[in-house]
Every structure is written in structure tokens, then in C-alpha cells.
Design a protein around this nucleic acid. Sequence first.
DNA 1: CACCGCAACTAAATCGATTTAGTTGATTAA
DNA 2: TTAATCAACTAAATCGATTTAGTTGCGGTG
Lengths: 338, 338
Amino acid sequence: MQKKIKLIDVAQLAEVSKSTVSQYLNGRFDYMSEKTKERIKLAIQELDYVPNPIARSLKMNTTKTIGVIVRDITGFYTSRTIRGIDDYCKKSNYNVLVYNTDFDSEIEAKSLETLYQLRVDGIIIASSGKNTQLIDKYISNGLPIVHFQLEHDGNEKNIVVSDYRKAAFDATEYLIKLGHKRICFLTQDFQSMKSRKDRYLGYCDALEKHNIGVDKALVQYWHRESGFVQTPKNMLDALNPPTVFFTQHLPITTELLKALNNENISIPDDVSLLAFDEIPMAEYLKVPITVVTQNPYEVGKEATKLLLDNISNNDAPPQKVIIPSAFIKRQSCKDVSN
Amino acid sequence: MQKKIKLIDVAQLAEVSKSTVSQYLNGRFDYMSEKTKERIKLAIQELDYVPNPIARSLKMNTTKTIGVIVRDITGFYTSRTIRGIDDYCKKSNYNVLVYNTDFDSEIEAKSLETLYQLRVDGIIIASSGKNTQLIDKYISNGLPIVHFQLEHDGNEKNIVVSDYRKAAFDATEYLIKLGHKRICFLTQDFQSMKSRKDRYLGYCDALEKHNIGVDKALVQYWHRESGFVQTPKNMLDALNPPTVFFTQHLPITTELLKALNNENISIPDDVSLLAFDEIPMAEYLKVPITVVTQNPYEVGKEATKLLLDNISNNDAPPQKVIIPSAFIKRQSCKDVSN
DNA sequence: CACCGCAACTAAATCGATTTAGTTGATTAA
DNA sequence: TTAATCAACTAAATCGATTTAGTTGCGGTG
């Protein structure tokens, strides 16, 4: 490895002390003559010197690195969120370390610990909600942490999320205006997950506004491990079946699509479909699916902005940022108002 | 920020010198009594001590971090490759820094420089082929660099790629066996890109084997900025039109799908389609598309393995690793043999 | 003309590890 | 008995920056 130029080389060439070069590098020209400044500048150019970030980190106790914890970087939304984080960080001269948890809250805890040990300057996390204590400990140790996407009891302080409630409201109202009254809300367990519950509340808001009661039989669940609690076919065979499925997450949507496919149930003739979350290649599907889509890139960007604010200003006020979603009308919702 | 425990705290508690603790940490027990070992172990446990990786980096001149340069982390394949890299790195206690170039070779150069300045231990890159000199300079400076996915003249030393030629051969032969003789090969400019040219060679191999001449009119181009040189409609309106499109990259496939859609040309009735590279949601498309798909996760894993080998063994022999692709038969290729 | 104040620097300590070159005391060989 | 050997440690230098507490020399003041 070609030996790298260091501070002392610059100092020697410019015939000044290391301290002076360091002052120069850190832009503290308070008491520095123009001649010296010029000489240092030339020496740096001449030697093509760049400070060693590791030495700097050690002394400054700052790494110019943030950690990001997500469930799977491969996800359509997640990868775009990370892109937003990345772009903003690179612009601000920060580095990004990404950790995947694979939906495992123990791996999440380990990732938090590792990032803490690595002395990252801050963390952005889509948290499971199962490591609140650990997170709070780090925060009170002075490590800024910003949440995104997944909101639950206990992390509503510094967080960036989509406008789940409003988006779900708009989508539901759109369906109502098409004449739908039996809207099946397909979701994952809420538990303490506000970001899931908010969608539900938006759905209820719209029903209420149009004087349609919330029928619990129309609120159906899907689990990441075990799939649908009731099969879509069963739901449709019920006494008073839904005329539309309103799926809340991409995996639910794809599983539903698969199930309907297998049963030869066609959209939107047999049943309509509206999905929360954009579907890759949605335009080219058998029937282009109407969706509500978040803006993950923006979420990432805003989360980073928030985090960097917190890093530079230790007592920045906690903030909740809400990113608007978009509604993309395609052809999966039939007008049943006749 | 809660003060962190350091080496000296452990040394004091265990009543030994810093040196001894350091020896312990680095597993050099050559001349260490069992009692001392035990005392240090207890002290570390007691204090919950973890060494400061930054101080270690400074002294050891190693960062336990690798850099990854891709064009867009958001891509279906890219994100999966990175996942492979990430998983392997985490297992080996390495960190990963990802840089996106957005298909811009100047940003690529800057990323290389930044990663070099950051003292990463190695770099994995899907390179544009336009920074060969810079890359070679770093390599000869002792920075291990492994390429993946994009092969061109000058980077065939340490690289992990898919079996482009064989995959294209198999796919083409599959089409020939379905009776296709006019197979339109839709690609991007080869220039010095072996990974593109190899697909073409595989295509030619298959045609030759089955005594079908290569018709240059059937080799058509698409550019990232300007789109198709000839519109798909035009290609089909030609005197002796293709019976199948064999697209070489995902963006070409989606653009083609869009164009055919607009012209109401249907697959596979009007024309067949076979795509190189898996398509997200391919099963749910209007017509499920038959594809050749690479194994990006494996590519990432192998590239990392290769890089880490190069890092730990400075003169590991250069290696070219080829990852097999898979053929997924769906319904976009019509049998025209009758 | 001695003293002060200030501009313009610099020496040395520091960050938290690793590593080299010793040191110490006990055992063994001559 | 004494030197040599060796196990079991430790002191101090080092990595490459930043920062604090000086130092130096010059111009101005009473």
C-alpha cells in the first residue's frame, strides 16, 4: 500500500507546525497570516493530502456515520427509503451502515448494540416495537435515533411516517363513491402498531362519514408466517360477501392475487381490489391495480434530515413528520353503483 | 453520552497492564497464566467492555469495512446482490458502505476516491468500465477490488458474473425448439461490455448449432436515454418479422411491454417474449413471462467471499467465478412449430 | 525604556487501542 | 554458587489527527 500523506508531511512542506495545519483544515483562521494560509493551501495541493477520517474520529468522538436498521433491504419500499437516506447522507458527508433484521426483533436488538458499539452518530430505524427499552436507553445515552414507517406506542417522538389515516380514508371514500358498501379491510394484527391502526381508523372514518357501519366480519387478518386467517374464497362465499378487497400491505396483496388466481376469481368482475402500497409492475398486471402509494424516497430523505438535525443540535425539539401518499387510479375497482 | 469503558478500565480492575489485556483480546495466550486470563475475563464481563473499533482501526490500519459501488441500490437485482454481500459481511464481522452512481461514471470515480480515502479494506463494484485506470491504480496500491455482474475488457481478473453465454444459449435453444427461427435479440450497445456480448454469443451459438444464420436485422438496440432505435411496432411490420422478442435487460423488457401494450399487440399470440432477468411480479402479469434469471444473492455472496479472501491473503490468485442462472418457463412463448 | 497586549504561531497532551522491547523473578544447568 | 533460560508480565512508543496552554516577537504606551 502506497504510504499515505499525513498532516505532518503537510506541516513540514509548509514549514509550519501540525497545529497550524489542523487549524487551517478546520477553518479557524482567527490568527493566521495570509502567507501561512497560502503556504498550507499549496502544500495540501502539492501533496494531494486528505485527512485520515479514522484519526479524526478517534479524537473528535464522532464517526460521520449513521446506522440504518430495516427488516429487509430488498423490499420495494425499503430499498427506496434507503436510497433517500443514502442520497441525503452523501450530500451531507455522512456514511450509511445498513442492517437487516429479517423481521426478527432479536436481530434488531443485536443490530442496535453493534451500531452503538461502532459509535455511529445516529440511527434510523423501522422498529419492530419490541426493543423500546433498549432504544430509549441509547437515546438517553445521547445517541440520536429517528424512527420511520412503523409507528407504535412509545416511538412517536422523532418519527417520519406516511399519512396512513388520510390515505386510507381517501381510498375508502373512493370505493364508497363507486358504490361499494361491503369493503373488506385486509390487514396484519394491529397490536400496538399505530401505523397499521391508523389505516384502519382512516377506513372507519370514511365509512362513518358515509353512514356505513363498520362490520367486524369485513376486517380480516393475514399473518406473515401463517397467511390468511380465512381464505379469500371463504370470505367471498360468506352470506354477505365483500364487493372489494382493500389490502393494507404488499405481501397481503400478492398472496391475495395468488389465491384469487388459483380460484379463478377475476378482478374486477367478481370482486374489486384496492391496494395500500405500490405494486411493482402494477401497470402490466392482468388487471392494473389501483393503489395508494407512499413516497418512500421522501420518507428516507426526511428521516435523515431529522436525524442530522438531532445530531448537530443535541436538543432539537422532537418532531413527527408526515409524508403525503399518492392515489393511483388504475382498473381494479369496478363501479357498482348502477 | 454515558462514558464508555476502555481498555485501561479493564486493566485496572483486573490489576494487570494494558498490554496484557490487549494480548488477551487478541487471543495471544502464549505466556499468560490461567489466573490472569480468568481475571481479565471477569473484568471484561463485569464492565461489559467492548473495544473501540476506531482506536483499533487507527492502530491496525484496517477498518473491517468494505465499500460497494452499484448503479442503483433500488434495482431488483442490485438490492438482492447487496443483500448477499451484507449477509456474508455481517457473518464475517465486516461493515458495508454502499455508493450509488446513478449510471454516472464520474460519480463512480468519486465514489472510488471517497472509499479509498475512508480506508475501506476492499471494494466490490459493478463498474461502468470507464474508470479502469483508477481502479488499477488502487489495486496496485494494495486495495483489493472485486468486480461483479458487469464484465468488460480490463476487469476479468477478480470477478463474479452469471453464466451469461450459457444462459442465453439455453434460452435461445428453447425458443428454437418451439419452432422459432426469427428471434429478435433486443440489447444495449455492447462496446467493450463482455457481459452483454456474452449473451449475444450465446444467442449466436444456439442459432449456429441449429443451422440458423444470424440475421443482423434481428439484432436490435435500446438505449437507456433514448429508448428503442426502432420501435417494436416497426420491427414487427418489417418484411420478415421476428416471431419472438428476446430482451436482454429488465428496462428493455418493461419498455417493450409498454410499447406492445400501447399498440395492442398481444403476447404470445401476436409475438412471443422471453426475457433475460426476472421480472418482479412476473407470475401476475397479463401473460406470465418466461425468463432466464440470474441469482443475484449468490453473486453478492460469492463476490464478498472472493473479496475477503483477497483481503486476508494479499496474494490470493485472481479468480473468475461464474454463477449459474435459472430458466423459468411461464407462458409467453408460443409453440410455432406446427 | 520597561512593560503590556496582541497577532501568530507551536509543544505537548490526548483520543483508545496495539506492539515492541524490556523487566522481573523463579528455575535449571554447569 | 552463579549464569543462563524462560514464563509472565509491563513501560513506552505508536497510529494521525485535534486542542489546550503556552511561547515569541513586535508595536504601542506612559
